Amino acid sequence: MTQKKLHPSVLKFKEFVKNNPKIIKEVRDGKATWQELYEDWYLLGEEDQRWETIGTEKATEPETSNESKGDWMSNIMGMVKKMDPNQMQNHINNLSQALGAIQGVISQFQGGNAAAGSIKPPEGPKNPFGFRKD
């Protein structure tokens, strides 16, 4: 495998992160991005007080179930407020088209004419009685 050579400062930051596993947890919990942390590290340095406080905020404040429920609801409401109705409509249309395509493929495998949306009963003989005219 060919690996792109990283800038020396990025390599130093990676080494810093390996020595401070709380930073990885910070990113995985969604509290910060790698870009933000790298910029802070680059500007503030390794000895800044910010790195000592990472991961300790939650340990000092225990959560109660009511607070977590309220926090969950506020997160949901915040996401609903941030939604763009036009973008949601586009996503719904794309999903609808994808489902229609999947239904079309399934109906082709099931035997043909069901793609038109009308399911025909099995055809028997046109005249169920086999009497002939004499």
Rank of each mutant, 00 (worst) to 15 (best):
E123Y: 00
N113L: 08
S118T: 13
P125E: 11
P121T: 05
G130R: 07
A98W: 04
V105F: 14
G130F: 03
Q108H: 07
L99S: 10
N127I: 00
Q97A: 15
L99R: 13
G117I: 01
R132N: 08
V105Y: 13
A115K: 11
Q108K: 15
I119W: 11
L99W: 05
G100C: 01
P128T: 03
A101E: 14
A98R: 06
P121Y: 01
G112P: 02
G104C: 00
G104L: 06
I106H: 07
S107W: 02
A98M: 09
I106N: 08
L99Q: 14
L99D: 08
F129G: 02
Q103V: 03
F109C: 09
A116T: 15
S118K: 12
P121H: 01
R132E: 08
R132M: 04
A98V: 03
G112Y: 05
I119L: 12
G111Q: 02
P122M: 03
I106K: 13
A116C: 07
P121M: 06
Q108L: 13
N113C: 04
F131A: 01
G112I: 02
S118N: 10
G104T: 06
F109I: 14
A101P: 00
F129Y: 10
Q110V: 10
I102D: 08
K120D: 13
G112L: 03
A115W: 04
F131G: 03
F109V: 11
I119Y: 10
P128C: 01
L99H: 11
G130M: 08
E123H: 02
E123G: 03
S118D: 03
G124D: 09
A98C: 02
A114M: 11
Q97N: 15
Q110W: 09
G124C: 02
N127S: 10
A98E: 08
F131P: 01
N127V: 01
R132H: 06
Q97W: 10
Q97E: 15
P128S: 05
S118C: 00
Q103F: 06
G130Q: 09
G112T: 07
K126S: 10
L99N: 13
G124Y: 08
P121D: 04
G111E: 04
F109P: 00
P128N: 07
A101Q: 10
S118E: 09
K120M: 13
A101N: 12
S118F: 04
G130Y: 02
G104A: 08
A98Q: 09
A116L: 12
K120Q: 15
G100I: 03
A116E: 13
F109K: 07
Q110Y: 11
I106W: 05
Q103K: 12
G112A: 10
F131E: 04
A98P: 00
I102Q: 12
R132S: 11
G104F: 13
A114T: 13
G130S: 14
G112W: 01
Q110A: 13
F129A: 04
Q103L: 11
V105A: 15
N127E: 07
Q97S: 15
A115I: 14
A114I: 07
K120C: 03
A101K: 11
F109A: 11
F109L: 14
P128Y: 04
G130N: 13
Q103H: 06
L99A: 11
E123R: 05
P122W: 00
I119S: 07
K120N: 14
A98T: 09
P122K: 08
G104W: 05
R132L: 05
